[in-house]
Design a binder for these strands. Structure first.
Length: 765
DNA sequence: AGCACGCCGACT
DNA sequence: GTCGGCGTGCTC
């Protein structure tokens, strides 16, 4: 069978005579059901068309941007011709193959993945006037939007104009933006400034330090001056302002490389042997390990692609790499917040001008000239996968994406984390292991057995906090649940107040009139009840450790200011005690880290694997001591996490995963259908179940409350249209993905009222 | 019958 | 993404 991305094996396009005649094209329009289409290559374009060439091809009369994804033998079918090639958007053939694999493995349309691999901000509607017809208001060579052409020529007129090649679609990179620069005039300023003009002097000095020219945005920021001072300098004739084309934010390293020696062997070994490697390295050593890998790659003449989970981590890493790597290498960040600069970086990386490209998952598909290594930091982090709900980027974990990329481009991969995901650590994943690095420091651990106590915060815990505060240390308290309490129950009959739709206990949130009840699953909010709905008693009591409650209890007991740190709020910044969610509290290092409910962290929400990582991270974030309260002090996962013993954890969990058929031993796809129950059931029973291949197991549909209030608002879901979950399980990843893709296509084609979303191998089910 | 509207499938 | 076909349902 001919491979769709490499072409038929019968007629390899080698010489001019056998140049490609017919190509398979993925048109980049927002339609999830449009198949790949075939076009004839006109003689004038023959030779310039290969896999990865971006082309303009007609579809219902109009030109469309597309990517050549394969060849085909000439048949007897009448085919339309390609119109032009848009050569400054071409993708490397290897990247197209990667996109095809990613699409197949994730049940996503190839078009969606290709779009993510193209430079951001393409103007796909720009048309160039080639041969203006008599009477046209435009001159030859003029570029204008398709909308304007249509307004003047009409729909039919535009079609004819395109067919006669009077105008052609010219998809192009985002036009370069100009930024304002301040330039020192001849003769400088120096003594001519009045003595009191501090700001102007600061500006002038900063400008001189930058060699006499600098973008004004940086200049004002660095000198701490406003535009008024800048104006003054212009009026004095000391400087002038001018527009210059924006440049990619590529910077040079300026270190010595001296701190990297101890990681040289590991990095060298991975790059020498190639393939995928897991390197268990303590989080604080992460930057140095990345630097060592980048250095080893540079020594072999290759660039390095580094992936970090969040923008903030990317920027931090760029700064540290500049400091750690020997002078003379180029480093650049790549993430969505760069705006237009991202497009320039894409181009610089493609031309091989960036030695180390550090980016978020958006960078995983960026072409990098002479790529020598790929490095994924904080590998198990879920932020490495785009939220499938947001429709931004490819909802595939960067780990899985670069695994494929490494294979196709034959580039060594190194995955870093002290607690790698088990699906990667399992020997069956194909990743080899480098000798793990020991943490430089591990805190003293104190485990408080809470069995048989009613107190939420033990006296041991409070004493430990007091002691740390006496020594002027800081305390970080991990409480992942928001609100004052995780549940409200009746003290008389024991009834737990729960959400009527989700049947999960309500959390108690702060607010007027006794606060409100909030459902963590669907986002439902209610006024806090005064009486038990079951027995009418007014003896309702709140329980369960939540950030807000822990904070007020601690503030009262310790008599200090306590900062609450959650995604939403942060007050009392700089307080000696911080209570908050793991991600935020563990970012800052504390002398004492307190985990008041280790059981909730480990088993409360999500997988045990994630809980293990969080607890391990809590220990890493401590500069001196860690205290954890638990009701299962003997639990092996808890023990392993607190002892920093990942190997013991993996040894216990890996056989369990194998037995359950979790990745990489088996694969699953999570399919979410949104719509009325009857339509969902009909679609599943008549359309899907009979179409499944043997060996693929289907469970569901089971109702899933839309996750969070914001999702509900976005999708307009209501009581009649809830979401339904289907799970597909099979041994092979490709077979679940294929089945999931089939489901998605069938539902999209036949069941108009339903929305489908597919996630292959989600991090959590 | 005549027309507006919306859904569906084709487009290469 | 764009278009035409066709069915539904409403109006003259």
């Amino acid at each position: 069978m001919p491979n769709p991305t490499t072409g038929s094996s019968q007629q390899p396009p080698r010489t001019r005579r056998s140049a490609v005649r017919v190509v398979r094209v993925a048109l980049l329009i927002r339609s999830h059901t449009l198949p790949l289409l075939s076009y004839r290559v006109p003689n004038r374009l023959a030779g310039g068309v290969r896999v990865g060439t971006t082309v303009v091809a007609p579809l219902s009369g109009y030109g469309r941007l597309g990517v050549v994804v394969g060849f085909e033998r000439e048949g007897d079918r009448e085919l339309k011709e390609l119109r032009t090639v848009a050569s400054d958007l071409n993708l490397p053939a290897t990247l197209v193959r990667l996109c095809a694999r990613v699409a197949a493995a994730s049940a996503l349309p190839l078009q969606t993945v290709l779009r993510a691999a193209l430079p951001p901000g393409i103007s796909a509607a720009a048309c160039e006037v080639i041969r203006p017809a008599p009477g046209w208001p435009w001159k030859r060579g003029e570029v204008l939007g398709r909308a304007e052409l249509r307004r003047t020529l009409g729909a039919a007129g535009l079609k004819t104009a395109e067919e006669e090649m009077r105008v052609i679609l010219t998809p192009r990179r985002a036009p370069p933006r100009t930024v304002e620069w301040a330039v020192l005039e001849e003769g400088g300023i120096g003594s001519r400034l009045p003595r009191r003009a501090h700001r102007q002097r600061a500006l002038a000095e900063t400008l001189e330090r930058h060699g006499g020219a600098c973008p004004t945005a940086y200049l004002l920021d660095e000198a701490g001056a406003g535009r008024a001072s800048l104006r003054q300098l212009v009026l004095r004739g000391a400087i002038r302002l001018e527009g210059r084309p924006e440049t990619a934010p590529v910077s040079y390293t300026r270190g010595s490389g001296a701190d990297l020696a101890s990681y040289r062997d590991g990095a060298g070994r991975a790059l020498e042997r190639g393939g995928a490697w897991v390197w268990r390295t303590p989080t604080p050593q992460g930057s140095a390990v990345v630097a060592a890998i980048a250095r080893a790659a540079a020594a072999r003449g290759g660039g390095t692609l580094v992936l970090a989970p969040e923008v903030e981590a990317v920027e931090r890493l760029v700064g540290e790499l500049r400091r750690l790597l020997p002078a003379g290498l180029t480093v650049a960040p790549y993430h969505a917040k760069l705006g237009r600069g991202r497009d320039l970086l894409y181009e610089a990386a493609r031309r091989g001008e960036v030695d180390v490209l550090v980016g978020t998952r958006a960078a995983a598909l960026v072409p990098v000239g002479s790529l020598g290594a790929i490095c994924v930091t904080d590998e198990p982090n879920e932020a490495h996968r785009a939220d499938p709900e947001s429709h931004e980027g490819v909802p595939v974990h960067a780990r899985d994406l670069v695994m494929e990329r490494g294979r196709i481009e034959d580039v060594p991969l190194v995955f870093l984390s002290p607690t790698p995901s088990l699906k990667l650590y399992a020997p069956e994943s194909g990743a080899s292991r480098l000798p793990p690095r020991k943490p430089d420091f591990w805190p003293a651990i104190r485990l408080v057995d809470q069995r048989g106590t009613g107190a939420a915060l033990s006296s041991t815990l409070l004493d430990a906090c007091r002691e740390t505060l006496r020594e002027e240390g800081c305390v970080g308290v991990v409480a992942n649940r928001l609100g004052l309490a995780t549940l409200v129950s009746c003290r008389r009959c024991g009834r737990v107040l729960s959400c009527p739709t989700c049947d999960r206990p309500f959390a108690l949130h702060d607010g007027p009139e006794g606060g409100s009840l909030a459902c963590g699953t669907c986002g439902r909010r209610e006024r806090a009840a005064r009486e038990c709905p079951a027995c009418g008693s007014d003896r309702l009591g709140a329980a369960g450790l939540a950030a807000g409650g822990v904070r007020s209890t601690l503030a009262g007991a310790l008599d200090v200011e306590v900062d609450l740190l959650t995604a939403r709020e942060r007050d009392a910044a700089g307080a000696p005690v911080v209570v908050g969610t793991t991600g935020l509290v563990l970012k800052k290092r504390c002398d004492l880290v307190v985990v008041p409910d280790a059981d909730a962290l480990l088993f409360g929400s999500g997988t045990v694997e994630r809980g293990f990582g969080l607890l391990y991270g809590a220990a890493e974030a401590s500069r001196s001591r860690l205290l954890a309260q638990t009701r299962s002090p003997e639990h092996p996962v808890l023990r392993a996490a607190l002892a920093g013993d990942y190997e013991a954890f993996a040894a216990a969990e890996l056989p369990r995963r194998r037995a359950l058929g979790y990745p990489p031993h088996g694969h699953l796809a999570k399919i979410t259908l949104t719509g009325p129950e009857r339509a969902v059931r009909r679609a599943v029973e008549s359309g899907l179940r009979p179409a499944l291949e043997p060996g693929i197991e289907l469970t569901g549909p089971s109702p899933v409350p839309a996750n969070g209030a914001n999702v509900k608002a976005k999708t307009g879901a209501n009581a009649e249209t809830t979401s339904w979950r289907l799970l597909l399980r099979a041994r092979g990843r490709e077979s679940v993905a294929a089945a999931a893709a089939l489901v998605a296509r069938r539902v999209a084609e036949r069941c108009g009222g339903l929305r489908v979303r597919v996630e292959v191998d989600p991090e959590e089910v």
